[in-house]
C-alpha cells in the first residue's frame, strides 16, 4: 500500500492540511486537493515554467517538486495574487500589454515576473530575457511579455513612490 501522510502548510496566506502520498508533486497537490489549476504541468521537465509556484518566496517548478517538501512551508500561487482591491499591477500590465494569446503559460510568467521585480525592480531587457529564459510561450508573445514586465516595473515603482 502506498504510504500516505498529512502535510500542513500555508497556501496563499491561509493555513491548510492535505493528505498526500510520497510520490505526489506540488502540481498534483494543488490541482487534486485544492482545485487550483493555475500551476499546470506542460513540459514536465522544469523547462517551460507553466508550473511555477513560489515556495517560501522562491520560484520553483511545481512539476519537479515533491508535495512532501512543502510540509511546513509557505506556498504562493497565481490564485493568491489578486486582492479584494483588484488585480495585481503585474496582472494589469500583462493585460494592458496584450502579453498572451492562449494564456496557458501566463500564470507562470506572472509569478516569475513578480520574483524578478522583487530582486531587480528596474530590470534591463537583457535581465528580463535571462530571468525569464526558463519560461516558454508557444504563442510567441515574447515582445509583449518584455513590454509587460517593463510596464509592471514602472507601475510598481510609481505605486511605491506614491506610498
Amino acid at each position: 500500500m502506498p504510504q500516505t501522510r498529512t502535510i500542513s502548510f500555508t497556501l496563499n496566506g491561509r493555513p491548510v492540511n492535505a493528505e498526500i502520498e510520497a510520490h505526489h508533486t506540488v502540481v498534483e497537490l494543488l490541482q487534486e486537493r485544492f482545485a487550483l489549476f493555475g500551476a499546470r504541468e506542460s513540459c514536465g521537465q522544469g523547462l517551460c515554467g507553466c508550473c511555477t509556484v513560489k515556495v517560501d518566496g522562491e520560484a520553483v517548478s511545481g512539476c519537479l517538486y515533491l508535495a512532501s517538501f512543502v510540509d511546513g512551508a509557505s506556498v504562493d500561487t497565481i490564485e493568491g495574487m489578486a486582492t479584494s482591491g483588484g488585480l495585481d499591477p503585474i496582472q494589469e500590465a500583462f493585460i494592458e500589454a496584450g502579453a498572451f494569446q492562449c494564456g496557458f503559460c501566463t500564470s507562470g510568467f506572472i509569478l516569475m515576473t513578480q520574483r524578478l521585480l522583487e530582486e531587480h525592480p528596474d530590470p534591463t531587457p537583457d535581465k528580463i530575457k535571462s530571468y525569464l529564459s526558463g519560461n516558454l510561450c508557444r504563442c510567441g508573445t515574447y515582445p509583449e511579455i518584455i513590454k509587460a514586465v517593463q510596464l509592471a516595473s514602472s507601475k510598481r515603482r510609481a505605486s511605491k513612490a506614491a506610498a
Binding site: 520553483v60 517548478s61 526558463g134
Partner: peptide, 12 residues
Amino acid sequence: LRILSNVRVRNV
C-alpha cells in the same frame, strides 16, 4: 551559474 539551467532549477 548565470547560464546554468534556469532560475527555478537553481533555486532548488
